[in-house]
Amino acid sequence: MTAPLIEVCVEGIDGFLAAQGAGADRVELCASLMEGGLTPSLATIRAAVRAARIPVHVIVRPRGGDFLYSQAEFETMLADVAALRSEGVAGVVIGCLTPDGRIDEARMQALVEAARPMSVTCHRAFDMTADAGEALEALIRCGVDRVLTSGQRDTALEGLDILKQINAQAGDRIVIMGCGALDADTIKAVRDGARLRELHFAALKTIPSGMMFRNPNVGMGGTGKDREYQLTVTDPDAVRATIAAARSA
């Protein structure tokens, strides 16, 4: 089996540079990974594209929460996709659902058409669908290039049976990119168990803030006060170790 392609999910320009420097084949660029990833700022996207030696894929997700969007939200997603195409981004990462847990084919087709010639990935909205096999066929009809999935479970190891099933179902029609708590200890088992060509992980660590003055009387954004003095960053050593494990015999 050939070595899998490795995509690293990162937050911000520092995360991008860390992942690229540690050997990622491709990066998914996000903001706010604590919410599962939101669309990053235009300046961040431009900085990553300027520095890129590998493809940059950008998530198009206007808010946290579910994947059932208002018409106004959907229109912003279309505009973001058009802007990303004009910025020279290699790919976009999208996902829209209907209230009954199906792929919203009309909206996904519109986003795919707006994105070309960029590559299009459906993110883990797929994992929130009612029927994985049905959702996969819907994404194929929409012309999506790949789907990011943990096999509809919290981790790829837990979702391994579904990953195997949908990878067999996909054949050469769409790429199944496995994710879900992948690290140096788990990635090889998922690679071999589902025979995946692409794998995705974040390799994050938490470090203390460099702030010396800390106001104990103010909390920002509803988070715990301690959280404001912690930074979640991409760990290049963990990226290297996980890539090495994914490519080991």
Rank of each mutant, 00 (worst) to 15 (best):
A125I: 15
V49N: 10
E87D: 15
R46T: 13
C96D: 03
V58C: 11
V239F: 01
Q169S: 13
A246L: 14
E35G: 09
F201K: 00
V144T: 08
R85I: 08
G222K: 01
V120M: 05
P117K: 03
I54V: 15
C122R: 01
D161A: 10
E198Q: 09
P99G: 09
Y69T: 06
V60H: 08
L38W: 11
E7I: 04
G64Q: 02
M128R: 00
V175T: 06
A48D: 02
M108V: 15
C9T: 03
C122P: 04
V120N: 04
V58A: 06
Q230I: 01
A48Y: 08
C96W: 05
M118H: 10
D161Q: 13
P55Y: 06
T232R: 00
R153K: 09
M220L: 13
G64F: 00
M211P: 12
A132N: 01
M34L: 08
K205C: 00
P216M: 05
A51P: 00
P216Q: 09
V120C: 06
R85T: 11
Q165E: 06
I207C: 04
R102A: 08
D192Y: 10
A130E: 03
T129D: 11
R26N: 14
M34K: 14
F16C: 12
G91W: 03
R227G: 00
D192L: 12
A52R: 10
D226P: 03
G193M: 09
Q165D: 11
A246R: 09
A110P: 14
E228M: 01
S150T: 14
R116Y: 14
I166P: 07
A132M: 08
K164H: 12
G178M: 02
A181Q: 04
E87L: 14
